[in-house]
Simulated assay, not measured.
Amino acid sequence: MSRIRIEGLLAAFPKLVGTGKQHTYVETENVRYVYQPIELLYLLLVTNKQSNILEDLDTLRLLSKLVPEYAPSLDEEGVCKMAFELIFAFDEAISLGHKENVTVAQVKQYCEMESHEERLHKLLMQSKINETKDVMKRKASEIDKSKIEKNRGDKGGFMAMSGPRRIESSFSDMSISSNSGGFGSGSGFGLSSDVESFSSKSKGRPPSTATAPSKGLGLKDPNRPFPTGQNDVNLIKWRIQGMNEASLPLTVNCWPTVSGSETFVNIEYEAFETFDLQNVLITIPLPASREPPSVRQIDGEWRYDARNSTLEWSILLVDNTNRSGSMEFVVPPADPSSFFPIAIKFTAANTFSDVKVGNVIPIRGGPPPKYAQRIQLIADNYEVV
């Protein structure tokens, strides 16, 4: 029976129903309505005219006993609230249009057994997810240890950002000096600060003998012009040493779980409150496949790159409204390690040190030149392995 046919029969029922009877039926040219009032509602059974009305009444009696077992109240709100539970119970009582030889207790037992199996499946899935989390934590711990050992060996830092557009420092009130013609005028420049030089403070080196201000390491030859037209000119290099995961602008966790003929992959991101991130792009490698992944849920947008076999998850802006987010997708069965390393790109309008250009001072006198500054944090190499 088609859906349109069922909707038409139900729409015709209120015009045919009578009042004043507890158990009754109405026959039309093609079907028989067997119904029973329940409070302000009707429990309705639609059959053909050739069916045994005694069996129909027996079926209606069983269904009328099931409704109070599942519905908290015998009104429209209570029945709608437990609609799926009632459908499952009715399905146990009626099979292929005929009443099953079951009791109310047996129907409840069958439904509970089905729920029990579902709970077991969920527990199994959660167990696999927890196991994957433990593996990822162990890998992260091993990576942290290897980074610490490497830092001890080369005395390097965790992060280095340089260039005129990516300057970070732990000092404040710092100024960059140049002549009146600006950086490209052919004269030298210097750095000045109200605190001691970073290099002389940390490494014990004497200050530079150049003509630049005594508290700032400027060009060794002030007569040489500033190297304009170059993208990466190292003015200041600032490093963070001993940085922990809680200080990162963005953290990403990924949990692949193989279940039967599918692999469920859950990915979550969490952003540090100090930074508002723009143009976040998380690129997940995928096993080679002709079909794109099935994305079940996502906070943001996604794109499948078939040529590189990667899934790109993009979030235009991460601020106080979406400090965390998640994505879930499904692919054919695959080794969990095939989803790593995950590459991450983003930018931010502020930096760890929050250093800014205070002013530009010509070394040889003259009016200060006009300048504009742009502060930006850029993730050059940011991976989850």
Rank of each mutant, 00 (worst) to 15 (best):
R138N: 10
P225V: 01
K122S: 12
S202W: 12
T47G: 02
K155L: 14
L9V: 06
E76H: 04
I148C: 02
E270G: 08
Q36R: 13
S185W: 09
S259D: 11
S326M: 10
S208A: 09
D305E: 05
K65N: 09
Y25Q: 09
D299W: 10
K203S: 12
S192I: 04
S127E: 06
R224T: 14
T59K: 07
C254N: 05
T209K: 08
R152E: 10
M136E: 09
Q376N: 07
P292R: 02
F339C: 00
T321G: 10
K147S: 09
G186C: 04
L286T: 01
E77T: 15
E142Y: 07
R239T: 11
N244I: 10
L66M: 04
Y304C: 02
E168P: 04
L54C: 03
P222D: 07
F264Q: 07
G188F: 00
A140C: 03
R3H: 15
I143D: 02
I53Q: 03
K139F: 07
G153R: 14
M113D: 15
L235T: 01
D335R: 04
Y42L: 08
F90T: 04
L123C: 09
P227A: 07
T257D: 03
F272A: 14
I236M: 08
W238N: 14
L217D: 15
N266M: 12
R364C: 05
E118K: 08
P333Q: 14
P368W: 00
G157R: 01
Q373W: 01
Y25F: 12
V107S: 00
S309L: 12
E142P: 00
Y33V: 06
I87P: 01
T103S: 13
E262K: 07
N101D: 14
T347G: 05
E273H: 08
D58H: 07
K139T: 09
S51F: 06
G358P: 03
M174Q: 12
S172R: 14
N179V: 01
T24P: 05
A348V: 01
G366R: 02
